[in-house]
Design a protein around this nucleic acid. Structure first.
Lengths: 79, 79
DNA sequence: GTGTAGACTAAGGTCGACA
DNA sequence: ATGTCGACCTTAGTCTACA
């Protein structure tokens, strides 16, 4: 499982659990709505600054989002 | 303080404390030596996959590297 | 409210060379 | 062993539009 895929899942899970729409998240983090969409579907990967602004918008520490991403990767273990 | 700058400091600190050279880290993480150099000096920012492969090479969980990056940002607090 | 597509600009990342 | 420079190619991220 690719990192992008895992991050996408972690992002979608976090966002939905906070009750945000992709649109709201995009606005709040100064990113494009279509980009958030692609991130969640694992078709793009974020840069450090995107990770930071997204997690700030979600009121989640960035390292937590990364940690969850890693957990998802470990679960679907193909190394 | 920019995220790139904080990450660069966190990276350099982690790498030196592990006793690796930039060259060794670059080789081990499949990145270019010059790029590692620019990262440490805060002139470039990494993508998610770079963060993951770098921290794996350093035997540090990626979320730890991010956490330390955030700590450095908070210390030099300009929001 | 979300996925996708195409076209675009900016930045990620490589490579060879020299101090 | 590291910084930098120039040229290069790839991908992050934007924007408009339509289902």
């Amino acid at each position: 499982m690719k990192p992008e895929t895992a991050f996408g899942l972690a992002l979608k899970t976090a966002r939905s659990s906070k009750g945000f729409t992709q649109e709201q998240l995009a606005l709040n983090s100064n990113l494009d709505r279509t980009f958030i969409s692609m991130l969640e579907r694992g078709q793009r990967q974020p840069s450090l600054t995107s990770i930071l602004s997204i997690s700030e918008s979600l009121n989640i520490p960035a390292y937590e989002l990364i940690r969850q991403t890693m957990e998802i990767m470990d679960k679907n273990n193909k190394s």
